[in-house]
Design a protein around this nucleic acid. Structure first.
Length: 265
DNA sequence: AACGGAACCTGAAAGC
DNA sequence: TGCTTTCAGGTTCCGT
């Protein structure tokens, strides 16, 4: 279940594995991931092309090809790009080979997406993205203005991809803990200094997670045996790292939120 | 226009 | 032990 940091790690790995290399072979399974586009459309798009660059914006990836075309990728909830040799691995949905290097897209739940763009034009979801906290940074004044215009809670507003591209359920919870803001506060009620704390919280949380997770393979926290690198996410009952009050869990907009009832106000 | 909720999938863990 | 329910870091679509 990737958010900005996990997708950034995926981008760095893809860059290292495929950057500048020519795709010599590829295959794409017929799944909902390719949404109606024929597998041969993807094969034709990538085979023989060089991977000019790997870009990330929010939770989206883009492999730009020497032809001017592009392969867009969203990891959904359980998508991963992994480097593997040998036969297809379990849940493998696509494969890109560049000589000796073989990279596979694995996605059990199939919420991810691959989009073939022969002209390189980005999909609507990409064009609708707001500023990326890591690459663009968030402007506190702009963010406050956006937050003023909604009736939603701050937690739900932060997960809006047009407000902060790449922030999801975990980063929103972690950022609000760092900012000492309650997730159930109305987004429009935040003062300028509180919005500034949220901006700092988002950037700090993303950088921290990136440092914890940078590796040639991503492990998602709900996978068996994975450890939890987060401060409050998934830590109900554990002491708040700041004030030792037990962390509380509640549901908000259908998603679990974790927060400290004492120091987040 | 904006919001809440269901739907889309599969697997692991928790509950009985 | 085995069956059932719940939950999972995503987006999209549909109804109000």
């Amino acid at each position: 279940m990737p958010e900005l940091p996990e997708v950034e790690v995926a981008a760095r790995n893809l860059r290292a594995w495929l950057g500048g290399k020519r795709i010599t072979a590829a295959s794409f399974a017929t799944t909902r991931i390719i949404r109606g586009q024929a597998p041969r459309t993807f094969v034709r798009l990538v085979v023989g092309q060089r991977v000019r660059e790997v870009e990330r914006r929010g939770k989206w990836l883009c492999l730009r090809l020497s032809s001017g075309g592009a392969l867009y990728s969203h990891l959904g909830m359980t998508g991963k790009w992994v480097r593997r040799d040998g036969p297809a691995v379990r849940w493998e949905r696509a494969r890109l080979d560049a000589g000796e290097v073989s990279v596979r897209y694995v996605d059990p739940r199939q919420f991810g997406r691959l989009i073939a763009a022969p002209d390189g034009a980005p999909p609507e979801a990409w064009r609708a993205l707001g500023p990326d906290p890591l690459t663009d940074g968030l402007d506190p004044a702009w963010l406050r203005e956006r937050l003023q215009r909604t009736g939603r809670s701050i937690k739900e507003a932060l997960m809006d991809q047009s407000i902060a591209a790449g922030v999801g359920n975990i980063q929103a919870a972690e950022a609000l803990w760092r900012a000492r803001i309650s997730p159930i506060r109305a987004a429009s009620s935040l003062s300028p200094s509180e919005v500034r704390r949220v901006v700092d919280g988002i950037e700090a949380s993303i950088r921290f997670t990136l440092g914890e997770e940078e590796a040639p393979e991503i492990t998602y926290v709900e996978e068996p045996g994975a450890d939890n690198p987060f401060l409050v996410y998934g830590k109900a009952g554990a002491p708040c790292p700041r004030c030792r009050t037990p962390i509380r869990k509640r549901t908000q907009g259908g998603r679990a939120t974790f927060y400290c009832p004492r120091c987040q106000t």
